[in-house]
Design a protein around this nucleic acid. Structure first.
Lengths: 190, 190
DNA sequence: AAGTTTGTTGATTGACGAGTCAATAAACTT
DNA sequence: AAGTTTATTGACTCGTCAATCAACAAACTT
């Protein structure tokens, strides 16, 4: 009963399942069978569409980054002026979609993956570079622009990291507030 | 030719080897054999002294945290006044001993471990709690003390995180500078 | 109708690795 | 000297899992 054109559907299902399972287990020690099962298919089929487990991880990572990138771009499109743009990036970074448990857990694990898998490292480099240049662009007017941007980037990562271990629901609003406080302090001085 | 009293020596060697191997491989997917080999013994002996691989990880984590704690305490002992104490904590956090590749890589991986292993989570909770209360104590005079402390904690974690992916040598001085800039900005504002 | 492409899975392979065990030996104890 | 504790390892067990394969089926092509 094979419907044709399954490929993209299956792949998408696998990517979602990968993220969910990594978030659930809390590590990359997730079997292909687990992922496939959650995606409603056999492990053999998972291997059929993605060549290897690593490919699945990378596809999942790309997916998370794509969503995040789209959200940032959307927020930037309606923001006027460097200050508003800065705040738009922050709000997008901690939005409900990006700052949810699973996604944050996946980020942390992908960070680890990037230590040993060059393709993952490259991918993370692309993301970091984009965020960095976005932030710098917004802070171009400021003398300490680059330094402020670097600090903000690290702070965002740190807030993600802390989210993972906290128990209780994610609180994006609090994270945004912390980042904003940083920004206000550094922009306000002078 | 068994010398007696090997236990503490072997254990220490295993702890060190664990940290080095995790840093080298960049993940917790390190075999007991690899660790044992680096520590100059058989894997069976490693299992003899530590019951399981997980025990080894936890011992390694405790070791790192102990070193860090000692360094912070040492720096605090000679610091006078809340401001100096704050800066002492920062300097200790990014000192050559704590901010080296292996240690930072181990931190990242233990963070992941803490997601699934309760004992690791507890341990990390203890460390975070101590840092938090240290920072808050230094900032007691300030109205936004707790908020500033939380932001600083997240920033420190974020700087660690970023260190992992950067290529090139660790630059503790730059990290301290970034954290100091945050502090100066938030303390300077009214 | 015959052939090709796409979808799908149960069963199997092959490797790897945590943990155990039996055996050996040196050092202390009585 | 006999017995006990501590150190040490090679060999083995047992489970797990990524990846492959053979086989079947539905849908398009000619």
């Amino acid at each position: 009963m094979p419907k044709l054109g399954m490929q993209p559907i299956r792949k998408q299902a696998l990517v979602n399942a990968t993220i969910v399972e990594i978030g659930r287990v809390g590590s990359l020690d997730v079997t292909v069978s687990q992922i496939a099962k959650r995606a409603g298919m056999s492990s053999a089929l998972a291997h059929h569409y993605f060549g290897s487990k690593e490919d699945m991880f990378l596809a999942a990572m790309r997916h998370i980054m794509t969503l995040y990138g789209a959200e940032v771009r959307g927020a930037l499109a309606v923001a006027d002026g460097p200050d508003a743009r800065l705040r738009a990036i922050l709000r997008a970074s901690f939005s409900a979609g990006n700052f949810r448990r699973e996604a944050v857990g996946a980020w942390l694990n992908f960070w680890v993956l990037a230590q040993s898998v060059p393709a993952a490292r490259r991918l993370l480099g692309v993301y970091q570079g984009r965020l960095r240049s976005n932030l710098r662009a917004c802070l171009r007017g400021h003398a300490d622009g680059p330094a402020i941007a670097d600090g903000l980037g690290a702070l965002i990562d740190g807030l993600y990291l802390r989210e993972v271990l906290k128990d209780g629901l994610p609180d994006g609003a609090a994270a945004v507030a912390t980042a904003m406080a940083y920004l206000d302090a550094r922009l306000g001085q002078r």
